[in-house]
Nucleic acid binder design. Sequence first.
DNA 1: AAGTGGTCTAGACCACGGC
DNA 2: CCGTGGTCTAGACCACTTG
Lengths: 242, 242
Amino acid sequence: MTMKLNEDMPCHLEISEYLIRNIQSGIFRENEKIPSENELCLKFNVNRHVIRQALTRLTNLGWITPFQGKGCYVNSLQKPIQYVLSSNTRFSDNMENLGVVHQSKLLSWEKGLPSRVEMKNLLLSEKQAVYRLEILRFIEGQPLSVTTTVMPEEEVPQLEIYLQEFKSLYQIMLDHYQLRPVRSRSIFQASLPLLRDAKVLEIPENIPIIQIESLMNHPTGNSIEYSIARIRGDMHKCLVEF
Amino acid sequence: MTMKLNEDMPCHLEISEYLIRNIQSGIFRENEKIPSENELCLKFNVNRHVIRQALTRLTNLGWITPFQGKGCYVNSLQKPIQYVLSSNTRFSDNMENLGVVHQSKLLSWEKGLPSRVEMKNLLLSEKQAVYRLEILRFIEGQPLSVTTTVMPEEEVPQLEIYLQEFKSLYQIMLDHYQLRPVRSRSIFQASLPLLRDAKVLEIPENIPIIQIESLMNHPTGNSIEYSIARIRGDMHKCLVEF
DNA sequence: AAGTGGTCTAGACCACGGC
DNA sequence: CCGTGGTCTAGACCACTTG
């Protein structure tokens, strides 16, 4: 059973639009396999290369994920979690409030001298060491975000001791340093992930992420934490109230 | 002069990485042409199709833009404008403060009944009509964002009169209705543009955008403006202070 | 007319997954 | 083993830009 196509649009675009409509209308269902490349070749009576062009577009736009040897599967469409950003909220609080299963994992950490940007944001001299942490956060078992967090050593001396059994940065700061940082500003930007971030987030490199650069202060005033979070755009919304 | 390639990576990936490095290091300069497909075929001694795969990736990641009959040109890398979002700032104010040349254009408008979402946000009944505006904003002559703005008719009766010579929505509200809306909340999300938005923004459909859904109130309390802005991620940062 | 990118065909071999 | 997607070749014609 072959399928006719219009003639004003390139064939591969026509086919990708057709497939997208089929996903949107639920004919191809979430997490299920779409027809194989060969089947689509027969259906549309075109060369396999044309089908592959169409499927590449669907992959890039985040509709499907191809698996070698298995087929192309429709991505489960995320209903983004709504995170409330205010001066006092942190990741764990938000997820607790939403009743969402969450988890943090320390990917890596280092102690070193601050970069120019870090010096500027944390008001440090070039000799004041900082801790730099890479934290991966999950909700419902899925990677949601990677965050680079930088703190002056003098605020959290010997932090490595408490990193052995890392569960929540907030908890460490509270339990061992009596610190309760307050958000002073955040900067939002949409972008594409770096290859490294795309890998740990388990997404293709074409999926947009929201980057949130934040500065957290002591309640009394001085900056103690500078972080850059890269968050899957399709899993996350961020609400700010004024 | 041909070029050797490693063997552990697919050839097209290898080539696209090579080209990206060349752009990053400035060997291929901003707004200049990169070698043609045929030249690259000779250089790497591969089929044209392989080169096209590599160039497709570069296009999708926003490095180059192809022009039929001319060649592929390196995109000018944007330094994103930093917009301050607070309860009182609007587009014009921000751009004035930054000393940036800006402009707004009314793409279309309509008067109609509110959707369910609009009713919920603006606290309207299903019989209360709304004005719906599509506004395109430019900075330095380049399209930056498309915004859909919805306002109850009763707040801005006979708005169409003032839309004839549209320059700034804020100005119209202030001059003709003595309204000075205040931002009550915004929701941020990174996503890909709809085809329609990609066209008016003059970007490929793979470039991430930040979507900002805002609710603006009367200083006294009730909601008077509900808007959804879609903004080029590479041209825009949004700062929120707490 | 020559060169560029855009589309499409036909066919080959490989790597991977599941039966 | 077969079917799947991933890579690559060789060649064709078209649409568009430039000289």
